[in-house]
């Protein structure tokens, strides 16, 4: 039971959006799909859901080719693209979801719409960016497919609605542990939710590991620049920043020994890890 990408390549003109991507998304996990703008996150999700045809490679969902009904019926992509007709209202979109997804919870969807103050009789094309996101979140949370994919789920949402979404997502996952993939730039907000992180850059998978394993494998040390420099000799420093006389280095490896006086060690969060990794790649 898994989604498997095998050697997926996809180009747009001269731009290679995905370059020989192989990846497995296992059942019953919350995945974070992280990357800079244009890294290939949305392209990957669009290839998975049959919106884009790959130039080469195959995608399967529980062993079924992803372009077929059997596979697509197990997926729901709540993406930022509005694929609904211009004149379709929110209520009709819920009716349509109920027609195609047997496990769609209509009552729960209407309850969520009330919580998010989403007007059911409004045309989808007339919704603001924030309410457009809410509309897709409501569908994603109610559709009850084995695999739910959120592409920039909180685009345009205020802090209160973002918080509500994360709480509802955790509750849904606790009640029915399906596979959830969250593609987002707001890494700090989802860091605690993500069990497994996939980092993509320029169409290639850079990291594919449990979040805990990624962040536990490195740490930050900061202090006076001279002191940090002498401590860092012989260690695997992958990025460093200097602010005034204060220097911070990100170091790979497990550090158990005590630091010299004046230096401070801090565990890296997922966002810090991501930024450091991107800077390291940029320097290469």
């Amino acid at each position: 039971m898994a989604i498997e990408f095998q050697h997926i390549t996809k180009s747009f003109g001269d731009t290679r959006a995905l370059d020989d991507v192989s990846l497995t998304l296992e059942a019953g996990k919350i995945y974070g799909l992280l990357g800079d703008n244009g890294a290939g996150k949305s392209t990957l999700l669009n290839v998975l859901t049959g919106r884009l045809a790959p130039d080469s490679g195959t995608v399967t969902v529980d062993g079924e080719r992803a372009e077929g009904d059997a596979a697509l019926g197990k997926l729901f992509l709540a993406g930022d693209a509005n694929l609904y007709p211009d004149d379709m209202k929110v209520k009709r979109a819920l009716d349509t979801a109920a027609l195609f997804y047997p496990d769609f919870d209509r009552k729960y969807a209407e309850d969520l719409a009330r919580q998010f103050e989403l007007p059911l009789d409004r045309k989808i094309s007339r919704l603001s960016t924030g309410y457009g996101s809410i509309f897709r979140l409501v569908l994603g949370l109610s559709v009850n497919t084995p695999y739910v994919l959120f592409d920039e789920p909180v685009l345009g949402l205020d802090a209160r609605h973002r918080d509500l979404f994360y709480k509802l997502l955790v509750r849904k996952y606790a009640e029915d542990p399906c596979t959830i993939v969250i593609s987002t730039h707001l890494i700090a907000e989802v860091a605690d939710l993500i069990e497994h992180t996939v980092i993509i850059r320029k169409g290639r998978i850079l990291r594919d590991a449990p979040t805990e394993e990624l962040t536990a494998g490195c740490f930050q040390v900061s202090g006076p620049a001279g002191l940090v420099d002498s401590w860092a000799v012989g260690r695997e420093v992958f990025t460093s920043t200097v602010l005034g006389g204060l220097k911070t280095v990100c170091v790979r490896g497990e550090e158990k020994e005590d630091l010299p006086a004046g230096l401070e060690r801090r565990r890296m969060g997922l966002q810090e890890y991501f930024i450091s990794l991107m800077e390291e790649e940029e320097q290469r």
Binding site: G50, E67, G68, L72, G73, L83, P85, T96, A97, Y101
Partner: peptide, 16 residues
């Protein structure tokens, strides 16, 4: 185009 869009969003293959 309209049907391909909305039906893809609802998990229907291009062929179907």
């Amino acid at each position: 185009r309209e049907n391909q869009r909305v039906l893809n969003q609802n998990g229907v293959s291009r062929r179907s």
